[in-house]
Nucleic acid binder design. Sequence first.
DNA 1: TCGGCAACGAAGTCCCTGAT
DNA 2: ATCAGGGACTTCGTTGCCGA
Length: 284
Amino acid sequence: MEGDQAASANAARKEETQARQRSTIGFPYADLNTAVDLANAIHDHVGSGDCDDDQLAAWTNQSVKSSGFRTQIYAARMFGVLEGEGSRHRLSELGRSIVDPNRAREARAKSFQMVPLYKAIFDGHRGGVIPPTAALEREMVGLGVAEKQKERARQVFERAAEQAGYFEHGRNRLVMPGIAQGPSREDENPQEELHGGGNGSGGGGGGKEPPIDPIIAGLLARLPKSGDVWPIAERKLWLQLLEGSFQLIYKDAPAKLSPPPGDADYRKEHGMPPNPEAKGSIFD
DNA sequence: TCGGCAACGAAGTCCCTGAT
DNA sequence: ATCAGGGACTTCGTTGCCGA
């Protein structure tokens, strides 16, 4: 009996474990101000030198073992403010800028875009209006945030955007704060500059528009090679994500100019031959 | 000496709860 | 509803042991 109970407990536990989802895109669980606080603590005590967990925890009145402290360290590294190996920490170049009142504004703006999730959202809504809460959370899930973390991710995102100055033109608009734009390479891709580069598909911020939106690039990167096995269900999911991304990235034509024609209507209107394969949606 | 494997610890992540 | 913090869990890299 006890064996049965243990077995069912194990089964339940396994089920629970399988339900547990991990995010596939990086985002911090603590906001930008938290990262700046850690940076200030290091700057105040050792300047550009390094310190260890114990010291940093003591300076910020925390316990090394608390998960809160670890979350903050992780966030500070993700914002590109701190760097180091293991339990040693020091200010990164960006961290040194962020504790300098003359450069803090620019550094905060750059830090915000060090986070892959935030950069993807920023690039996806450049010059446009960000969607309301529920839609924004859905978008985050689409970008790789775990379903159960979407709310927390959105909350931290909003705080960080506020703290980095991206909401200066209203909370529904993500606008890079006005800073003197130099020709430096760091402006074009701060993430590569400070982390020795990722694998490139998400890059392309800064002055120029990227040739392909990072969201689309991310989806393309997940496309299996020709000849690989790719189940129908997964293909549909991929196409749905692509469709959602298009809605997110591209503006629709003004209603007056473009009534929503069906494929047949559209072809007729534009003098094209009828599509022999037309059977409704691409998802059919 | 080398390769396989298990144990262990650190880092990263998720979830829950109490406070505001 | 949101925030803050702690506990618990998963993942991954390292280390040590053992047999070939």
